[in-house]
């Protein structure tokens, strides 16, 4: 398994948003967590998640980014693409 280090603050913030939006415990949020693992992660909540991340990191996703973000790893990839150090 490859070793990855994350910018702790940004990662913590993202985990907090995910856990609040889907009402799951913080410990469940890992980079491997996927949409299908989370009961409340439906298409509406996915958009709410997008809005919350945009607001928290003060960025604007492009339309094509949104379907990419189906797991935490994907969200982080897109965030890096939009200039967030995570």
């Amino acid at each position: 398994m490859k070793k990855v280090t994350y910018n702790t603050y940004a990662y913590e913030r993202l985990s907090e948003i995910i856990s609040t939006t889907f009402q799951i415990p913080r410990e469940r949020v890992t980079p491997e967590l996927r949409q299908e693992d989370v009961e409340r992660w439906d298409s509406f909540q996915h958009l709410t998640l997008t809005m919350e991340i945009e607001a928290a990191f003060n960025i604007t996703f492009q339309t094509e980014d949104v379907p990419e973000m189906r797991d935490v790893e994907g969200i982080m990839r897109v965030l890096r693409m939009r200039g967030v150090d995570i």
């Binding site: 298409s43 509406f44 997008t50 809005m51 945009e54 607001a55 492009q62 339309t63 949104v66």
Partner: peptide, 12 residues
């Protein structure tokens, strides 16, 4: 974008 993706007409 939000309108196109999910008919959300208003920002957060």
């Amino acid at each position: 974008k939000m309108w196109a993706l999910g008919k959300i007409s208003f920002g957060r």
